[in-house]
Amino acid sequence: MTAITFIGYGEAGGILADALAKENPVTVWDCKLNGPERDAMITKAHRGGVRAAISLADALAGAELVFSTVTAGSALDVASHAAPLMTDTQYFLDLNSVAPQTKRQAAEYFKPGAYVDVAVMAPVPPGALRTPLLTGGREAEAIAELLTKLGCNARYGGNYVGSVSAIKMCRSVMIKGLEALTAECLFAAHHYGVEEQVLASLHASFPSLGWKDTFPDYLISRIAEHGIRRSEEMEEVVKTLSDAAGESVMSQATAIAQRHLPDRMAELGMTYAQLEPFNWKALAGVK
């Protein structure tokens, strides 16, 4: 067994922590444990078979692997607070979707080799431990082997920090851009009463994607449920492109578009839970 800690017990962290807890002792720490959602988080931890720590220091004590699964906007702050509390035998696995330069900044807080860049290459639900992970950094090859032994779908991706995050960030240009374009396209099509014709045309051009099935619901649901977090990730994508002296016009627009829908939902007092089972047409009038 391997002693594991997760900093961040949200969607991705919660799924991975609960899955690993079936065979290993897992401790979690989340900022919500210090707020009004504490009781709900304690209940979630109990159901997941993990221990809820009383502080970050408590969470890190005795852990062999420390997974950081917070938001993009919090990733660097978490690394800076965790590093001074860690020992020479612990590894910090940064799974957050941030720019390569942000990962390199985070790595500077740690002793050489203690920080591992991990790119999550697909949505964690529904794959859980089957979700493909790429590891980067000085000890990345050994960590990939250890993660594989724990049941994760991990693969070594490079020996320097930032390499696998570059893959992740460039991929996000397409994935999160497609989500934003789909919402913009179909909401307008619904307004004009031509959504079925538009979907039929998209299906004729790209039949393997499932435009006439659940694909549009899936893409738009990701914005409705996680648009704020995904907007933060796209801001890191913009940094990635800027560091490469590349254009980021589309990615800047995607960052704005990802945030717009959940912001509008919040203004209307609408939550994602109220929309389940999800159907994109229920949001077509939210502009």
Rank of each mutant, 00 (worst) to 15 (best):
W280Y: 14
H203P: 00
H260A: 09
V173Q: 13
D77H: 12
G285L: 10
I54T: 14
S163V: 15
Y156M: 09
V286Y: 04
L33H: 00
G246I: 06
F187C: 01
D217Q: 02
L219S: 07
D30N: 13
G48P: 04
S251W: 01
S205T: 12
L283S: 08
E64F: 01
E184V: 06
M250H: 10
A75F: 05
K168V: 08
E267I: 07
C31T: 14
A122M: 08
I167D: 04
K32Q: 12
A82D: 05
G10Q: 05
E145N: 10
F278T: 03
R138H: 08
A154V: 04
I7C: 05
V70D: 03
T43P: 00
I4T: 05
R264I: 01
Q258L: 15
S74L: 13
L178D: 07
A57P: 09
L95T: 14
A245M: 10
A140F: 01
G137F: 02
G10A: 11
Y156P: 01
R222W: 01
A99H: 02
G13A: 05
N34H: 12
E247R: 13
G73F: 08
I175D: 03
T148R: 12
S80I: 03
A106I: 02
E195A: 11
F206Y: 11
Q252A: 13
Q197R: 13
S172Y: 07
T254E: 01
A128C: 00
A189F: 05
A245L: 13
A61R: 14
G48A: 15
M174D: 02
A114K: 14
D77C: 11
L241C: 11
Y192L: 14
L275D: 02
A61D: 15
E196S: 11
E145L: 12
